[in-house]
Design a protein around this nucleic acid. Sequence first.
DNA 1: ATGGCGATTATGTATATACATATTGAAACG
DNA 2: CGTTTCAATATGTATATACATAATCGCCAT
Lengths: 246, 246
Amino acid sequence: MSIVETADAEGSVSLHQRILSDISERIMSGAWAPGHRIPFEHELSAQYNCSRMTVNKALSQLAKAGLIERRRRSGSFVRRPQSQAAVLEIHDIRIEVEALGLPYRYERVARHKRRSSAEDRALLELGAAGPVLALECGHFAGERPFAHEQRLINLTAVAEAADEEFVAIAPGPWLIGRVPWSEAEHRIRAVAADRHIAAALDIAAGAPCLVVERRTWSADHPVTHVRFTYAAESHTLVARFTPSQG
Amino acid sequence: MSIVETADAEGSVSLHQRILSDISERIMSGAWAPGHRIPFEHELSAQYNCSRMTVNKALSQLAKAGLIERRRRSGSFVRRPQSQAAVLEIHDIRIEVEALGLPYRYERVARHKRRSSAEDRALLELGAAGPVLALECGHFAGERPFAHEQRLINLTAVAEAADEEFVAIAPGPWLIGRVPWSEAEHRIRAVAADRHIAAALDIAAGAPCLVVERRTWSADHPVTHVRFTYAAESHTLVARFTPSQG
DNA sequence: ATGGCGATTATGTATATACATATTGAAACG
DNA sequence: CGTTTCAATATGTATATACATAATCGCCAT
């Protein structure tokens, strides 16, 4: 999320947004270095000839975005960037494939309904035993395998999934829109392909693969755990930067 | 950035924040599904017995966070989640290592000052030729190699780097705080270790590695390009979720 | 010196009010 | 019947005002 929304498209930006982008620019350009005290609210309201509330709106947003730190009685200060946070966009695989200009094909490989094993519960971070749906799917770009999907769905949280075959539709798009998620966690790592994955992706066993695992919660209930495995050549994750706090 | 900042620690939350978290919870839990019209500002201000401005503050934040969409004359509606965006925190390697409870060691392997080659310019997305500093560094966790760093610094943008040996301090921490960055781009992928990397990380050639590349700009000038290579077992990137707009 | 205390100051939150703006629905008109 | 116009409505922005809260400075007494 960019802080300054519709940056000077024309002259039709609100005052507090102009104040925000003015200050934000001075920080980004380095004119106001970390630690620098930016003008007090009453000074800015005099400069811009507006009320303190308007300035306050701009500065509050800058503080929430982590660009400045506000201290009562002392003023507002440019923050030192702490941890770099990048926004990683994780799209539906169909969209990723089609962005490459290749035809997308989906295939359901396997589907098992079972009582959750200890391993299932570990993956889903599930406390008690209950029914789960285990799925294995292939995603293709043209003729080549693009990604292999191994997914667990917590049927206690998403009972309707038990009646879905997932032949015509992939579980990802099926879940999106049906289940409101509140939280998710991604783990990204490199692995060597085991025999199973090697066969699925049509690569040599031991070849490097990128693994993206996602665990999703909805209102504190585990919903799904999915592991996507990509052959090394086929995929690069791109993350754009956000100047955020630490 | 979580939308509800200090969620009900005690009763000491501001009213607009309570309104925000009330609504946010109803959306997250699915009680208010995508497309649902949430109460008008004047209705909420009656419910909470507060002014419309207070409600407006809460709803504006929800809109900016992408949870709701506001339409003049029609009201505010729960948005359908579009693209999933996760926040990827990329820390300094020292911090990552120490988080594992292992002693951290840094080592500068090589340092070359040169006129930028065509490859350098491609990596930095640099237009004209100019001096660059090429660095190669090792990061160790205990006795084991943890990550290998290959870095280019654009000396046109960061002239002072020419006088730094980078023996005592790693280029990452050196650059942070000295150069205000405004933008960065990350590329994450899996590769097979070539002989050079294999030797540096003390792994077999062809073994899978996680590569994180980062390109950084400051006020539209390319500053640095860095490639971190991790042995597969040593590292997993963790990304937390943000319910963001698309 | 030093420890406490009150005054000062900047931010944090909330209010009532005002007018602008976009959009919709209905009435008026050709 | 279709089009234009207009009023109603919800949000968007800005104001002046008020009081709360936290942090700091300086004064004063010990």
